[in-house]
Design a protein around this nucleic acid. Structure first.
Length: 556
RNA sequence: GCGCCUGUAGCUCAGUGGAUUAGAGCAACUGCCUUCUAAGCAGUGGGUCGGGGGUUCGAGUCCCUCCAGGCGCGCCA
């Protein structure tokens, strides 16, 4: 089992404080979770705790004295070479180099299980992401949603959660009807009819193409039937066509779902009615102005929300509540994570209210909100035009800059921050893109291993790895589990690309400084040790790239 | 008007429950390929962390306020 220095040190510090209290060197107080961090400068060691500074107030002692009391009682584990007290009260830890080099064997033994954690304990988590309306091609915002959601799902899985990835298909409601009316019009137009598209319809060129396709494949048969009947018949074809392009776009990005969940099915299965009855029973339903309301204001929301409109049509809340009832009550997810664009941010309070209404702890529903992507081209903002339906689709961008570069870019930003994506720049820089820097490290290692195919390095002695560049590389590899943990606990996959960059940025200098395969016979022991090292580095690189959903090329 | 998010290098962005001397990529400049991939390496220049107050031994990070930007505030989803 791999030792995780950060968590271990946290525990050692905690024990040291308790021991100091037992000896009377520290007064009695509740021992907090000690903050162990990674110092910015290497001369401060590999890890440092500021616990003495934290405790100075509580203990009413100078931080230096607390630090000394703690440092002197830290059990000397084999992975620690040095524990040092530094003004004004830091306790700095330096990892043992012999121990560091031994970790290479540990990583090799773990292989692609390296950096798996047991945080989740098999807890059932669902991540629902993208879930764009199937009324048009995906735009770039959906790409950001996909990068975040999929990265989150990957990292949760690595951390030991039982993860399910889901796409919610909004195939019911007004938008869908408008889509069908538009499709009917485009289809009729393709056959020469003078059929205007509806006022609020979808003006995009893709609808014209879809209409043409329908006309050529199905002929005039839908025109020969009554309009309502034709709309029904077109429904399945139109929906399937849209979903197919959405699926393809996402697959291109490397995103695959466990389940595509249909909103319509919630109506067909009677769940919407059932959940409405449940709300009625609990007294969260009111009838006003001819509409049926969910009295969410009694559950912490600012105002009530319409479940069934006065025209008899159910609103989106009706199916949304039923959907989450299905997730939590019927399918039994312990936690549900929904990834939403900032434009849906206002829905959070009503969904939380809905959770209370169905007796689900609102904290079990986590909404990740990401800020919108501003597309630019040569510095100019590319506005999407609702009127003409001209949009830059996810597909366009994928074809322009490639899935790996796009995923890396979209993932590297914290969800909270708005992001600019300049297509011209991204394309221009694509060969200088950070993702290639990381992939290149992976390909380089693959190349070395091919070159050294004839060498059986299984008996390599890792204790020969003492060069600063070698140790730096091992240190970086050992951080991957911390990065996974950090990404999971903060639900922020953007740590992954930054770590990947650092790891590659430690590998390349190593490569320059340390020749892995030397032809001198006397170098063979070191060659074998270094082959082990690069094989381990390949594992770590591949792992972080996999978690990001980015390809791991064997050559470039 | 109210709510959420953001403001860090020329550009795009990191900066982990406050902590030791503010980072990366790109762009600019200077060197480095007769041995494992130069999509690489080594180095240089570049920042009043939006402004102002406050808390703290210590603030890019917390609080207040102002300024600027994004997104919401429907019987649309």
């Amino acid at each position: 089992m791999l030792v995780r220095p950060l968590t271990e040190i946290q525990e050692l510090v905690r024990e040291a404080i308790l021991a100091a209290q037992g000896d009377g060197d520290l007064p009695a107080f509740d021992v907090p979770e000690p903050v162990v961090e990674r110092p910015q400068h290497e001369e401060h060691g590999d890890y440092a705790t500021t616990v003495a500074l934290q405790l100075a107030g509580v203990a009413r002692m100078p931080p230096m004295r607390i630090a000394e009391a703690v440092a002197s009682r830290v059990t000397r584990a084999d992975f620690i070479a040095q524990v040092e007290v530094v003004r004004p009260g830091f306790v700095n830890f330096t990892l043992d180099e012999g121990w560091l080099s031994r970790q290479v064997d540990e990583i090799l033994a773990l292989g692609d299980r390296y950096a798996n954690l047991e945080l989740g304990q098999g807890e059932k988590v669902q991540v629902e992401y993208v879930s764009a309306n199937p009324t048009g091609p995906l735009h770039v915002g959906a790409g950001r949603n996909a990068a975040i959601g999929d990265g989150l799902a990957n990292v949760l899985e690595a951390a030991g959660y039982d993860v399910q990835r889901e796409f919610y298909i909004n195939d019911a409601g007004t938008q869908m009807r408008v889509f069908m009316n538009t499709l009917y019009a485009r289809y009729a137009q393709a056959l020469g009819r003078d059929e205007p598209i509806p006022d609020e319809g979808y003006p995009g060129a893709y609808m014209v193409e879809l209409g043409d396709l329908l006309a050529s494949q199905e002929g005039t048969r839908f025109l020969d039937m009554p309009r309502e009947e034709a709309l029904d018949a077109l429904y399945d074809i139109g929906l399937e066509a849209m979903l197919a392009t959405i699926r393809d776009d996402l697959r291109l990005m490397g995103v695959n779902y466990d389940r595509w969940f249909s909103e319509t099915s919630l109506y067909e299965d009677g769940l919407v009615d059932q959940v409405r009855a449940l709300l009625e029973e609990k007294g969260y339903i009111a009838h006003r102005d001819g509409a049926v309301w969910f009295v969410s204001s009694e559950l912490g929301d600012e105002k009530d929300n319409v479940l069934v409109r006065s025209d008899g049509e159910p609103g989106y809340m009706a199916s949304d509540i039923a959907y989450h009832y299905d997730k939590f009550i019927l399918r039994g997810f312990d936690k549900v994570i929904n990834v939403w664009g900032a434009d849906h941010q206002g829905h959070i309070p009503r969904m939380k209210a809905a959770m209370r209404a169905i007796d689900v702890d609102p904290d079990r529903l986590v909404i990740i909100v990401y800020q919108l992507v501003t597309l630019r081209r040569g510095g100019e903002i590319v506005r999407l035009s609702k009127r003409t339906g001209d949009i830059i689709t996810l597909r366009d961008v994928l074809e322009e800059i490639g899935p790996d570069a796009l995923r890396f870019l979209l993932m590297a930003r914290a969800a909270d921050s708005q992001m600019d994506l300049d297509l011209d720049l991204a394309k221009e820089q694509s060969s200088e893109n950070p993702v290639y820097y990381v992939q290149y490290a992976h390909a380089r290692i693959a190349s070395i291993l091919r070159y050294a195919e004839h060498i059986d390095y299984g008996d390599g002695d890792v204790s020969l790895l003492q060069h600063p560049a070698e140790l730096a590389l091992i240190r970086l590899m050992l951080r991957l589990p911390e990065v996974v943990e950090k990404s999971v606990t903060s639900l922020s996959p953007h740590y992954l690309p930054h770590y990947a960059l650092e790891l590659a940025g430690t590998f390349h200098p190593f490569y320059k400084q340390c020749r892995v395969v030397s032809s001198l016979p006397e170098d063979m022991p070191l060659n074998k040790a270094r082959l082990k090292l690069v094989a381990a580095a390949k594992i770590a690189l591949a792992r972080v790239l996999d978690l990001m959903g980015v390809a791991t090329p064997e050559s470039m």
